[in-house]
């Protein structure tokens, strides 16, 4: 079995209810379980999903079954579908060595829409994330996904981007097999396109650091 950069490896996928967090974490989890790793995915869904912040803890080990919650300040990588959710996660789970992949498209909370609260500027968010992490990538995954045909593909773009960082042993063949086992044939093509675009944006260095 390929050695992990860290064992256990702690990955957090975060975003807002409805962004496809759960699918993304399951795809990544399945890809790693297929390679023989022990995977635990901790997540909550239900009421918390209705426009609330959602967070999946994906934990990978070659040794033991891990708990569904990453201990505070122990994340190795944060994949975030929404900018301020990145900050929320880093505050509790970050550490000086953490990596971040961040979708730059904001989803405003109700408090911001109604004007009671304000949303930090993109510049401020990027600067803070850069300071709080060892390495970071930023791009508008929602815009890329909309171009493919549906903003929901942002979650798969993020999975592709994660694969391209080589943080985890994720490969495209396993992604394709996993897709085929989970989705109807007509959905496979677009998901592969989304995955490849995620890989592309990291490899062509178009994600602003």
């Amino acid at each position: 079995m390929i050695a992990l950069n860290h064992d256990p490896y702690n990955l957090i996928i975060t975003g807002v209810g409805g962004q496809g967090n759960v699918i993304s974490s399951r795809m990544i989890g399945n890809m790693l379980a297929a390679k023989g790793f022990q995977v635990t995915i901790g997540e909550t869904f239900g009421a918390s999903q209705r426009g609330g912040a959602v967070m999946s803890h994906v934990r990978i080990s070659s040794k033991a079954t891990l708990s569904p919650q990453i201990p505070v300040h122990q994340a190795h990588m944060v994949v975030s579908l929404e900018p301020i959710e990145t900050l929320r996660v880093l505050e509790s789970y970050g550490n000086p060595d953490v990596g971040v992949i961040c979708n730059t498209r904001p989803t405003h909370p109700i408090g911001v829409i109604s004007g009671r609260l304000s949303y930090p500027s993109t510049k401020e968010i990027k600067e803070t994330i850069t300071r709080l992490s060892a390495r970071s990538w930023f791009f508008d995954a929602t815009a890329m996904a909309t171009e493919i045909g549906n903003p929901i593909f942002a979650n798969i773009i993020m999975a592709g981007a994660l694969a391209a960082t080589k943080e985890l042993p994720l490969d495209r063949n396993v992604f394709e097999e996993t897709l085929k086992s989970k989705f109807p044939p007509n959905k496979v093509g677009l998901n592969l396109t989304a995955y490849d675009q995620g890989v592309g944006i990291i490899n062509t260095d178009n994600a602003s650091h």
């Binding site: 426009g51 912040a53 300040h73 959710e85 900050l87 505050e91 930090p120 300071r131 709080l132």
Partner: peptide, 26 residues
């Protein structure tokens, strides 16, 4: 106590106020 929990976020790195995400109707 765990040193990372004590020193992270690093001193002097003020986080902007993060608006809470109240759950609501879709």
């Amino acid at each position: 106590p765990d040193p990372v929990s004590q020193d992270y976020p690093p001193r002097g790195t003020a986080l902007p106020p993060i608006p809470p995400r109240e759950i609501s109707f879709c």
